[in-house]
Simulated assay, not measured.
Amino acid sequence: MVEEMVFEHLRTMPGHEWTRQIHSCKVSDPLQPPWGRSYRLVEWTMKHTPEASRRVVPAESTPLEIAQAVVSHVPGRRFCQQAD
């Protein structure tokens, strides 16, 4: 349900045309590490890019805040599995 709301926010964000190229968006259930605050892992893929992008957000983030985090994402290092 959260994923659907995040996806809908991404589709309606003005000024971010690239968000229409998002193929899928998954949001994990809240995870609680042994230390620190709980978080959710957000993973999305683009239509023409095989690699997924990921971002961690606080567990209490609303769907709109998660969508804003996806839009503000700056790609970093890419870790791809090597084909054998």
Rank of each mutant, 00 (worst) to 15 (best):
W44G: 05
C80R: 15
S61N: 04
P50I: 09
T49A: 11
M46H: 07
Q21R: 05
E60N: 15
H48R: 11
Q82Y: 10
R78E: 12
V56A: 07
P75A: 03
G76F: 03
W44N: 03
Q68L: 06
A52D: 06
L41G: 01
E4G: 13
Q82T: 13
G15W: 01
T19I: 01
E8R: 10
R55N: 15
P34D: 08
T45N: 12
C80N: 12
V70M: 01
M13N: 06
T19L: 02
A59P: 04
D29Y: 11
P63F: 00
G36E: 00
K47E: 12
S72F: 03
R40V: 10
E17H: 04
A52G: 07
I22A: 04
E43Q: 14
P50Y: 11
W44K: 00
W35F: 15
V70I: 08
L41Q: 06
M5P: 03
P14V: 10
V27T: 03
S24E: 06
G76M: 03
F7N: 03
R55V: 15
H73F: 14
H16A: 09
R77K: 10
W44P: 06
R78M: 09
R37V: 06
E65V: 01
P75K: 00
A83S: 11
I66R: 06
T19D: 03
L64N: 09
